[in-house]
Amino acid sequence: MNTAMHVLPYLVAVYVFLTGCYGLATSRNLIHAVGCLAVCQSATYVLLLAVGYRDGATAPVFSDIEPGSRPVVDPVVQALTLTDIVVGATVTALLLALVLQIAKRHGTVDPDELRELRG
């Protein structure tokens, strides 16, 4: 069982990323596409945190345990993930604002119809 465990988190991250990309590519509604982009972003968080994990370790936060008393996981990847989640949310808001502008100017949020309008 544990040989599968060695690679399972990375495979789940790859699967979620590819699913998000599939949704992004075949979306017929721009708001749905932004949701799929959020799924792609969460795949990168899963990969980052899986890389930093250590068996039997705990979080490197020493407010309630003695430093050095227990093995800890890698804090650097957690710092990356933490800031990226919040910044990702504001970038999603910016994308949704763009979708609103498209809906206002072209009256549709379907990417295929947008292509015909320009032709």
């Binding site: 705990t58 979080a59 936060v61 407010s63 309630d64 345990i65």
Partner: peptide, 14 residues
């Protein structure tokens, strides 16, 4: 589940 995990891992901070 989060409460149980916090108790299981022995980390009141969770």
């Amino acid at each position: 589940a989060l409460l149980l995990l916090s108790q299981g891992y022995g980390r009141p901070a969770y």
